[in-house]
């Protein structure tokens, strides 16, 4: 059986809020190392990969592999009841038809209990190879969100170009062109504002802004975001959750004419 108690319960709500507009039904795959999720959007353009490691929970117990087939719209309805500082506990049998979710207030004077019906979801799992990316950019997640949102107002796609001069986000739309360039930036006192660009070779790729803006719904999870690029492979956008738990988005590049 699964029993997992999360003290940073808002993490669960933020993860679901971040992915529910991209995927609707998905399996939460539970085993002794934690709770994982992998799902593609309907058009098979983007892939979501999440891992909440066992050490993010206290206690965490999962004796055997359990797939929790969850409709995220339904889970969102249950998570509406979650309040800041609540402890959340997930419980399920070995072959569950429902997921038991308990919210406890930090003062333990309120316990809310929900049973969410589960579904059988036949999902294809993709093997994601370890990739040495040509460019890795770590930057404030709010900045990335602002750039994507601003450029989406002008165009449906963005070209991301990483060179020794920095990383350039540019777009061309009916009303004109726009571009934002970021350079390496170090702020010793406010490290969350740093822009770190690691480059092994120049990269230029074009992506749909609709998906990037969607990924930015994960911004409340972390004040930093990591963007990894290599020519001709999907973009990786990563938000670290707690410790080494993560939420990753992969986006297939646009095909050049």
């Amino acid at each position: 059986m699964l029993e997992a108690r999360l003290s940073q319960s808002m993490v669960l709500k933020k993860v679901v809020d971040a992915i529910k507009d991209l995927v609707q039904d998905c399996n939460f795959d539970c085993n002794d190392s934690g709770i994982a999720l992998q799902a593609m959007d309907n058009s098979h353009v983007a892939l979501v990969s999440m891992l909440l490691k066992a050490e993010s929970f206290e206690p965490y117990r999962c004796d055997r592999n359990i797939a929790l087939g969850v409709n995220l719209v339904s889970l969102t309805k249950v998570l509406r009841a979650l309040q800041n500082d609540d402890l959340v506990t997930l419980k399920a049998d070995d072959a569950p038809d429902s997921l038991n979710i308990t919210f406890e207030s930090s003062t333990a004077d309120r316990i809310s209990e929900y049973d969410l019906k589960l579904m059988d979801i036949d999902q294809e799992h993709l093997g994601i190879p370890d990739t040495e990316y040509a460019a890795t950019v770590t930057m404030p997640s709010t900045e990335f969100k602002r750039i994507c949102t601003d450029l989406q107002a002008m165009s449906e796609s963005v070209t991301i170009e990483a060179t020794k001069d920095g990383i350039k986000f540019s777009c061309a739309g009916d009303i004109g062109n726009g571009a934002v360039t970021l350079r390496n930036y170090q702020n010793v006192e406010k490290e969350h504002l740093n822009v770190d660009i690691e480059l092994t070779e120049p990269v230029s790729l074009t992506f749909s802004l609709k998906y990037l803006v969607n990924f930015c719904k994960a911004q409340p999870l972390s004040d930093r975001v990591k963007i990894c690029l290599s020519n001709e492979v999907p973009l990786l956008v990563e938000y670290l959750i707690t410790g080494t738990s993560y939420l990753r988005f992969y986006l297939a590049p646009k095909v050049r004419d």
Binding site: M40, S43, H44, V45, A46, L47, E124, H125, L126, G127, I128, P129, S208, V233, P234, Y250, L251, A252, P253, K254, V255, R256, D257
Partner: peptide
């Protein structure tokens, strides 16, 4: 969408 790559063509099925 025209010109949009498919994620399944980059990652192998398990």
């Amino acid at each position: 969408e025209a010109g949009q790559g498919n994620i399944m063509s980059f990652f192998s099925k398990k």
